[in-house]
């Protein structure tokens, strides 16, 4: 019984750890994409606006 309880505790912890990693990674990707989007551009010259004019 003790072992089972411990495993459940660990599984819960691993699940929350995995969710935390996914949320963090998603945030990192969003920031990296945003940074790459504006790298070397005029800060007000939006790439999507330029694309829609083309």
């Amino acid at each position: 019984m003790q072992t089972e309880w411990c495993m459940t505790e660990l599984q819960q912890a691993l699940l929350i750890f995995a969710i935390g990693a996914v949320v963090t990674l998603t945030t990192v990707i969003m920031i990296a994409r945003g940074h790459a989007r504006w790298h070397g551009r005029d800060p007000y010259d939006d790439p999507s606006r330029a694309a829609s004019h083309d």
Binding site: L10, A13, L14, I16, F17, G20, V23, T24
Partner: peptide, 11 residues
């Protein structure tokens, strides 16, 4: 388990 729970919440 407690350490795994602690980690990403802090980040």
């Amino acid at each position: 388990p407690a350490g795994l729970l602690f980690a990403w919440n802090t980040g």
